[in-house]
Write a protein that binds this DNA or RNA. Structure first.
Lengths: 122, 122
DNA sequence: TACATCAGGTCTCTAAAAGAGACCATGCCT
DNA sequence: AGGCATGGTCTCTTTTAGAGACCTGATGTA
């Protein structure tokens, strides 16, 4: 019922989503649509192959991302896409991305002010 | 401009927010309003004192949370609250919490199905 | 009077997680 | 033949998170 309760079953669903790589992957898949493994790595800047694989696995297990393999193709073709459930979350997380983008300058200003106060103290 | 770019300045603002403890703290402060340090620790289930202090510091520096000290009081009284900027983000992140709560059962079902397939394979 | 308790943190130590980079088999293009 | 791309995994190192002791000062409890 309440995500604030560590024992709440929804909590560990939340934990899978409340993660920078997961959120950025949802963003990429929403914006650019179906992508292969290596495309995703290039599109989600800074992600390592390890975290890419790990996060994709988690989201696949959660029914948020689908993984389709075409074994006949050479080189091997593996496509990742949002499931209908995943498209829903991706849509919900969009506002957070937009807000971040719009208010980043204000956050930077706040940081500068905070650091000035801290320096003055020292 | 683009959060997917690791070099984008908004990216590290995003990183501060795309974190389970940060999101849960915003949630708690939005739902329950101003709280003292120890109240927050009790309300955000499972958080350690260390992560509580660290996350609060980050959010305070970002201008999302305000910290007010009353040194005359005994025991010392320190109050944490959302700033206007913080109230905005907290509102944006609400949809994610709601979605998680509403769809958790579906995610659990997806996990069960995934694990069954994996077991069958093995 | 002595002891435990609360406040808001910090400090240290350990355990878990993230990041870097090598490695793999296969097949393409030059 | 050599180099690159595919989708990953494996190992090693560094970073991060978590557990728990400790601190100062006042207040309540026996």
């Amino acid at each position: 019922m309440d995500l604030l309760d560590a024992a709440c079953p929804s909590r560990d669903v939340f934990v899978d989503l409340a993660d920078k790589w997961a959120l950025l992957m949802l963003m990429s898949l929403r914006e650019r649509g179906t992508q292969r493994y290596s495309e995703l790595q290039r599109s989600v800047g800074g992600i390592s192959r390890k975290m890419l694989a790990q996060t994709l696995r988690t989201l696949e297990r959660d029914g948020i991302v689908s993984r389709t393999v075409n074994p006949d193709a050479t080189p091997p073709l593996v496509l990742y896409a949002l499931t209908p459930l995943g498209a829903e979350v991706a849509e919900e997380t969009r506002v957070l991305c937009t807000w971040t983008h719009d208010r980043a300058a204000q956050v930077y200003a706040a940081r500068a002010a905070y650091d000035r106060r801290a320096d003055a103290q020292a």
